[in-house]
Design a protein around this nucleic acid. Structure first.
Lengths: 204, 204
DNA sequence: ATGCTAGGGTACGGGGCAGTACCGCGATTA
DNA sequence: TAATCGCGGTACTGCCCCGTACCCTAGCAT
């Protein structure tokens, strides 16, 4: 029978992945134990090792899927009937909301600390995560340039610069576990960045 | 005898600290072993535990001292006889040079991954490290405002914004172990940030 | 109903590490 | 020179964890 219905094997695999997400993000790669994952997922270690081979592969499978789904809410910012300023504002707020969520921070912490040991994984995370936002904005800026409402040479560099301003030190503070900005602080930060960006690049 | 000369105890303590720096930054807190530190420092575990009590305290002592000395080269940027633009450029380059050094990245990775477990340590790192640069620039900007060459309300926010632009995604990429920017890329990034900052806030 | 296979539960082997105990040597002091 | 103290070297204890092996049950096919 060929249907879209998940096989029991797929279900078991997903259950393990979900438990793995929890445990790896809570403890980090080194301190996470496969036994704990099994405890939360149910089943036995045998099954885990059947599906994923070893701890490293399980970890890689988890981070790969997480990075992709993390920044998926960003598409909403490009709704078509907003002007440049509104789009940038919306984009900045959504970006910060996503990046400052506790699970995003946990992914970031884990990938940063294990990036040297798992280079392929760090690359996947960056490309599907933070850099996906840059690519998206860059292409939007390209449209604006063509339509004559923006004047700038390197759209990719401008996009990186924009997100740099947006992150400010908010992301670093949050990643270090120091504090999370309030809604007001986020708005202030975004407005400040948008104002600067628009004044610099828009055609008056 | 009371002199500035280091006692043998002080020397042993420093040797252990130095070896601890190497090992903790190379392996991260969890994977670092006290045995390895002893191997590199010479001496015995007994001595380590006499001076530092346990692994956590040794780690804390190391990170605390590292953060402070990390950004000490920043003072050179404020040499007095440079104008705003030159000062910002110099500051940005020195800041990136420091932040992108392999040992700075190693500290960052370690503190990010252990910040939740050691909140006090993360705070120390941030205040003596990245935030010290912000404070320094903020006070410089305050002078410029008073002397009438700058127009901006919140110098601290502006300083955070400036360093956000400077870091762009260069620091994140490097922290993830992806790539280090070339000298040219750094210059381009800094020049772009300075141009934008000056255009926004300086009095024409 | 009976045989079989996949997977849950658990125990185990090999290895590593934090922190402690012990022995012996070398230096310091009287 | 003799006694003492402190430190280096090392072994040891208790603990944890990865990956594998083994038993046993439950569901499926014949």
């Amino acid at each position: 029978m060929v249907t879209a219905e998940k096989s029991t094997e797929q279900i078991r695999r997903d259950t393990i992945l979900q438990a793995g997400v929890e445990v790896f993000l809570e403890y980090g790669y080194v301190s996470a134990s496969v036994d704990e994952i099994v405890r939360r997922a149910g089943g036995s270690k045998r099954t885990v090792y059947k599906y994923f081979g070893n701890k490293e592969e399980l970890f890689a499978a988890i981070i790969g899927s997480l990075a992709t789904q993390m920044l998926s809410p960003l598409g909403a910012a490009f709704d078509g009937d907003s002007n440049l300023q509104e789009t940038l504002e919306k984009l900045g707020k959504v970006y910060l909301d996503v990046l400052l969520r506790e699970d995003s921070l946990a992914i970031f912490r884990t990938v940063v600390s294990e990036g040297v040991r798992f280079p392929e994984l760090a690359k996947t995370f960056f490309l599907n995560g933070p850099n996906a936002a840059v690519t998206r904005l860059s292409s939007y800026l390209g449209q604006q340039v063509k339509s004559g409402s923006l004047k700038l040479g390197d759209t990719h560099a401008a996009a990186r610069q924009y997100f740099g301003m947006i992150r400010s030190d908010l992301h670093m503070r949050a990643a270090l576990g120091l504090d999370l900005p309030t809604e007001d602080e986020i708005n202030t930060e975004v407005n400040r960045a948008v104002a600067m960006f628009v004044r610099e690049y828009s055609i008056k």
